[in-house]
Simulated scan of single mutants.
Amino acid sequence: MRTIDSEWIHETTPLYGEFEGERCGSDVSIIFTRLDTPGRGPALHQHPYSETFLIRKGVVRFTLGKRRVDAVAGEIVVATPETPHQFVSLSDEVEMIDIHASGRFITEWL
């Protein structure tokens, strides 16, 4: 099946935005994250499913429960279900692919 035309991909701009798989019959949703300022990132939150982060560019500090993990381009970080987590950019440019193990986004902000 082909995906629905999305606003997150253009030849002239980097990947950025969201895709909820449920719309296409998928059990996976994706966020293409791009941060261009150190110190940026979402507030503490959790999901009832796992979230897998593929770091494509830059350095990112993750808080996963009580642990802190610094990840660089090429590394993968996983937040297990119900684990409070957040991340913050440590470099000028961060690009990540955030894979949610759910056909729709379910987020509890803490």
Rank of each mutant, 00 (worst) to 15 (best):
R2F: 07
R2M: 10
R2A: 08
T3D: 09
I4F: 10
E7C: 00
W8M: 01
I9F: 13
H10C: 09
H10S: 14
E11A: 13
E11L: 13
T12E: 15
T13R: 15
T13M: 11
T13G: 06
P14A: 08
P14T: 11
P14D: 15
Y16P: 00
G17Q: 04
G17T: 08
G17L: 08
E18K: 09
F19T: 03
F19G: 02
F19V: 04
G21Y: 05
G21W: 11
G21C: 09
G21T: 01
R23M: 08
R23K: 14
C24A: 14
C24H: 12
G25K: 07
S26F: 15
S26N: 05
D27A: 12
V28K: 12
V28N: 03
V28C: 11
S29R: 07
S29M: 05
I30L: 13
I31N: 09
I31T: 08
T33M: 00
T33L: 13
R34P: 04
R34H: 09
R34L: 14
L35C: 02
L35V: 01
T37F: 00
P38Y: 10
P38A: 10
G39H: 04
G39T: 02
R40M: 03
P42N: 09
A43C: 03
H45K: 05
Q46W: 10
H47P: 12
H47R: 07
H47N: 15
H47F: 07
P48A: 05
P48L: 00
P48V: 03
P48F: 02
Y49N: 10
S50Q: 12
T52E: 14
F53C: 06
F53K: 01
L54D: 02
R56F: 05
V59N: 13
V59Q: 15
V60E: 09
V60H: 07
V60P: 02
R61S: 09
F62C: 07
L64E: 11
L64T: 03
G65C: 05
G65E: 11
K66A: 12
R67Q: 14
R67V: 01
R68T: 12
R68V: 01
R68L: 12
D70V: 15
A71P: 00
V72W: 05
A73R: 06
A73F: 08
E75F: 03
E75C: 08
V78H: 07
T80F: 05
T80V: 09
P81V: 04
E82D: 14
E82A: 02
P84N: 06
P84T: 04
Q86D: 08
F87W: 10
V88A: 11
V88W: 02
S91C: 08
D92Q: 09
E93V: 14
V94H: 02
M96T: 10
M96V: 05
D98P: 00
I99V: 15
I99M: 13
I99E: 11
H100V: 08
A101I: 05
S102Y: 03
G103M: 04
R104E: 07
I106Q: 14
E108Q: 11
W109V: 01
W109D: 03
L110R: 10
